[in-house]
Amino acid sequence: MDPHVGSGKIITAPIITEDGVPIKDPLVLLEAATPDQQASLISTKNGDEADHRLTDKQTIEWKLTLHQIGLDVLRTDRSMVFYEKKENLSKLWDILAVYAWIDKEVGYCQGMSDLCSPMIVLLNDEADAFWCFERLMRRLRGNFRCTQQSVGVENQLQHLASIIQVLDPKLHDHLETLGGGDYLFAFRMFMVLFRRELSFGDSLYLWEVNTSF
């Protein structure tokens, strides 16, 4: 596990190369390290980096995603006053980073921050928020699984197309005419459960109805 997790900091720049060599970027040092750590890291010579090269592929892949998580966290629900506090942003980053660590098959994908954000807002305890998010992902992680043959959410799009074709064939035919018969316009709706289509409050009402069955 990376020491940045739980430090109250957010990483928005790469901290490691694809070869497993730590990146001593001043931007990373300033935003992700404590003052004491900054002094020691900045004084580290570039020649010492090879001594700290990682060899475990899963660890390297995880560390490569940490800055992407940070960038997505900064874009999540930015209109909310709640996220004006950096400590709340760091909670969101921590949870997503830890989840990516424990679920190595799926890891982190864009859209997860939208799903996790309500947990941070509604629950004061970071651990409680994590386990609620982990429970939600048990139902939704299939949407984020990708293979050479298909994307996880593709099955739901096919089901939607079949349902619309039966319930409203005119609408289905119209979408086919417009070139939308693959229903890709609904991709984001399924991935983040309408978090970006509806307001924060309305999306939670929809979640409550959806999970009550």
Rank of each mutant, 00 (worst) to 15 (best):
K86M: 14
D114C: 02
A50Y: 12
L96T: 03
F194V: 04
I23Y: 10
I10F: 08
V73S: 08
V166M: 12
I164G: 02
F190Y: 14
K85P: 02
K85Q: 14
K45P: 01
Q37S: 05
G20I: 06
E176C: 03
Q37W: 03
R188P: 00
G201C: 08
F133E: 02
H159V: 15
V5D: 07
L123M: 10
P35H: 04
M119R: 02
G201T: 14
A50N: 15
C109G: 01
D94R: 01
S90N: 06
V73Q: 06
A39H: 09
F82G: 07
R141S: 13
L160T: 14
G142P: 01
I120S: 06
L140G: 00
S203Q: 04
T44A: 09
D168L: 01
I16W: 06
L136F: 09
L160R: 07
S7G: 05
E87R: 01
G180K: 10
G111Q: 06
A97F: 09
D182T: 04
L115R: 00
H172A: 14
L54N: 10
N46H: 14
E126N: 05
S43W: 02
T177D: 14
L122A: 11
V106Y: 08
I16N: 04
D48C: 05
M80S: 15
K86H: 15
G181L: 03
L54H: 15
S203D: 09
H52Y: 15
R53P: 06
S117V: 09
F200K: 01
Y183T: 01
E87K: 03
A33V: 07
I15F: 05
V209H: 07
H159K: 14
I120Q: 06
S43D: 11
S203K: 00
T65L: 10
L140S: 07
L167T: 13
G180M: 12
S212K: 04
E197R: 00
F82W: 14
D2L: 01
L206H: 08
L167R: 10
I164W: 08
P22V: 01
